[in-house]
Amino acid sequence: MFKKRINADKAKELFSGVIIPVSDPELLPIKDCDGRINAFDVVAGVDVPHYRRAAMDGFAVRASDTLGAGSNSPVILTAGTGVERGTCVMVHTGSPLPEGADAVVMVEDTVMHGDSVEVFTQVHPLKNVGEIGEDIQKGEVILKKGHRLRPCDIAVMASLGIRDIEVFRKPLVAIIPTGEELVPRGKESLKEGEIYETNGLMAALYIERWGGTPRLLDIVTDSPPRIKDAIISNLDADMIIISGGTSVGRRDYVPGIVESTGTLLVHGVGISPGKPTALGIINSKPVVCMPGYPVAGIVALYWFARPALRKLGNLPDEPDRIVRAVLSDKIASRAGYKTFARVKINNGKAIPLATSGAGILSSVSKADGFVIIPENIEGLSAGEEVDVVLIE
């Protein structure tokens, strides 16, 4: 039997406490860094802009030459190639400000007749002028270490002439599917007792979506030496996920192998579905042992593997995507277990699909999200407003 069932939140906290974030960086072109985490502060090496520039289309002037200009009393200036008393130069947005000019009159506040320019508004010094370093000053820290890069951040780096940046390496996650009943997805027909391997594929896709690099292994049979060999040969990974073999049956060897090879932190969690989940650490590498039943497996991935991967990858915490809905029917749950009830959303209603049936994978595909019922509550009633955590 399970040595001790542990509270789901305590299990997550215990597991998080043994995880050491990846610290080694890799140098990448900035165009490939969307969503990545910068490993060092990014410091501006130049001013932006690095020259005084016009901030509007119009005429560069000496502000003092526009004194008294108004809608009924324009000042007349002469358009030329340089700015001095009584003259102006046509400029475009982003143009260098000509020597002698200290302001720009917008083109809509002027009327041009040949070389004469009527100015209908008074401007003050630096009006419509972009100063050197107005956007970014040389030596300024523009992005702190640990920032998750967005397209706008990458554009700022491009404006500084930065071509490459050091970002934290994505965590490598080895995924080991186990089970005598599993067969590769390419097999054309199934015998009785055989099923296609799906958990490893699902885990690999989620790991990639969540910011890791998956390494999906071939199916490993329920053989302790082979499972142990698969673990040992993949300790170069930053995290290991093992699917199947976590319960208390005759062929459920995985928790014992983790315990004999490293440290078994948890075996048996107050989470439904997902009670047989086991968590451990081997050679400082976190190990998530997800149940073989696919719904229990996806709950284990969401509750344990996702936050572990985020910490490994130096990724900032992000809240779940949640929508509010009203329960169309009651949901039963078991005291002492955090229950993940699958629901479908329709016109503001949360329609329960299942709370049990850990092997019914299609119930997750049909669902829009989970209603997570706390351990101290025995079910929810129809008509209650609930949070629905959307399934990615």
Rank of each mutant, 00 (worst) to 15 (best):
L315G: 07
L312N: 11
E375Q: 13
G383H: 04
A305W: 01
I322M: 02
R306A: 11
G336E: 04
I331W: 01
A382T: 05
V343Y: 00
L361D: 10
S362R: 13
F340L: 05
A367M: 04
G336I: 12
E378V: 15
A325W: 00
A335T: 13
R324F: 01
L301P: 12
S362N: 13
V371W: 01
L380E: 02
I377M: 08
V371H: 03
K338Y: 11
I373L: 08
G348Q: 02
L315V: 09
I331E: 01
G313M: 07
I351Q: 00
R310K: 13
I377C: 06
I372P: 10
P316W: 06
G369R: 07
V371S: 08
A308D: 04
G383Y: 01
S362T: 15
D329K: 15
I351A: 08
L312S: 10
L312C: 07
L315H: 03
R306G: 09
S362E: 05
Y337H: 12
F370W: 08
L301V: 12
R342W: 01
P307A: 09
A335V: 15
T339V: 14
G359I: 15
A382S: 12
I360W: 04
V371N: 03
K344G: 01
T339P: 04
S356Q: 12
A367K: 08
T355H: 06
T339N: 05
L353S: 10
I331R: 05
L312A: 09
I360Q: 09
I322W: 00
L301T: 13
E384C: 09
L301Q: 07
G336Y: 06
E375C: 08
L361R: 11
A358Q: 05
F340H: 11
D387S: 13
K330R: 14
K344M: 05
L361S: 07
V343H: 04
K344F: 00
A335M: 13
T355R: 03
